[in-house]
Design a protein around this nucleic acid. Sequence first.
RNA 1: UGUCUCAUGGUGUAAUGGUAGCACUGCAGUUUCUGGAUCUGCCUGUUAAGGUUCGAGUCCUUAUGAGACAACCA
Length: 563
Amino acid sequence: MENKIDEAPKKSLNFIEAFVEQDLKDGKNGGRIQTRFPPEPNGYLHIGHAKAICLDFGVAKNYGGICNLRFDDTNPVKEDVEYVDSIQEDIKWLGYNWANVYYASDYFQQLWDLAIELIKKGKAYVDEQSAETIAKQKGSPTVPGVESPYRNRPIEENLELFRKMNTGEIAEGAMVLRAKIDMASSNMHFRDPLMYRVINSHPHHRTGWTWKAYPMYDYAHGQSDYFEGVTHSLCTLEFEVHRPLYDWFIDQFKDSDYRPRQIEFNRLNLTYTVMSKRKMLQLVQEGLVSGWDDPRMPTICGLRRRGYSPESIHNFIDKIGYTKFEAQNDIGLLEHSVRESLNKTATRVNAVIDPVKLIITNYPEGKVEMMETINNPEDETAGKREIAFTRELYVERDDFMEDAPKKYFRMTPGQEVRLKSAYIIKCTGCKKDENGKVEEVYAEFDDQTKSGMPEANRKVKGTLHWVSATHCLDAEVRLYDRLFSVENPSADERDFRELLNPGSLKVLSNCKVETSLGNAKALDQFQFQRIGYFNVDSDSAPSKLIFNRTVSLKDSWAKEKEK
RNA sequence: UGUCUCAUGGUGUAAUGGUAGCACUGCAGUUUCUGGAUCUGCCUGUUAAGGUUCGAGUCCUUAUGAGACAACCA
């Protein structure tokens, strides 16, 4: 037995964990591990952020370090407290606790002081050219830039102008502070990058009108990492080109052996989804979805409302891994992850989403039998409950066919099926309206086949779910599907809004569910037997039950039908 | 016609110079009071060409393809 444990396969490290372990082995930073999750509070978190969160918090946890939450709030034009709250809620929901909450705005004074130091060293200057001129002078990746005429302004003058940038004496857009590096560098970010710009049209959500000059990302981010003692600054691939500049700024100011290390990994791309904040915002603003938490959105709040468990998201992220390859991840894997998670935890209930009446013609009128049924066959501790059985029931319209193919295991005249947790019945026929639509299905039950009786062990091909027509509740069921109809909306030439899946939401208003669902609370997760996983929508009320389909069950009959 | 990064089945990801493995998907079967779940089996892969080496997915060279970078955004 002990040998078995030794033989357990070691989980292989991703390249970031390998770097971290090597740094630890090399004794860097005194063996300390510290990461940070640095969202800009300008939007809701999505599953791509969840990937970063799992890494930032996960690395800290696995290597005995800490992870801080830091809001990168250096642009008051776009940022808002509204987002600060939702971001914290979403991180907690994912199951993580930060050691501290910081704000880049906490460092405005320190950053200011360092900028002055840089000016005094002759390594930064105030440029008063227009944004367009500066852009033009940057050149292009293949053409070197040209130096600003203000590049060699005297230090005293730079100090004076920089001070004025922050007093309101300088108009927004009129001046910037730039680091003096190399206008001919092959790395565009080295061509005298902007460090500060003037913003006096918007108050900052935390510092109000105190500051008029705000630091730019490349300067603020790296220094914030440094101030906090971050050892591993993990970010996505598009910041790869920024790393030399990140290092450059740190080199200007560092005063010990300690330095944070930036490592980049691939961002999450999901098929049939868009992940850009801009596009999501457009979907919300144009009413193409009901809001940031629309269950079709890849936002954390959307997934939560859809019925995804935190565990399902962790499992998914675990499976896709972290590399430097720009992958397209199959949304099918996310769906698999949620089925895997909910299979173990969701109570099985009976819900008929497209009901047709089934009458057991030889069952006494008015009789009510309470049938015992198991809550979750995957979890012995989940217990049992009772459901009412009566002469008139509802079953799925799909579960009856007058002329059925050979492999149809459900109700068709002459065929026996089992009603789950109740009796075996034999279908005898149906009644149709003038259009040929089935109005009622008829069957006879065998009183020796009640679940638990010896005769109940008789082999029958199909087992159907049902609810009593007299002991059930009405419900609305929202069937959600993938938001887009093409695999990669971002790669399509057409406008992404034309690519929306018209069938991404179907509302069924005439569903019948078992009475036990009457006291279900918002977000409670269930498996509607034979249909899928559903949860209680946040708009649901006892007087109007609303369920969202998280994901359907795998359906091998649907595949068989297609053949 | 720059710099940087990347390339393993349909998709994603391992193999850290020594038997190309895992997961998802797909297919076939087993089993089942959910056509779910379970269990079993199968299909499919190292971008190309050279080189180093006893031995290369891994190291080197070149080619090809893909991505990132020219916001007073982060």
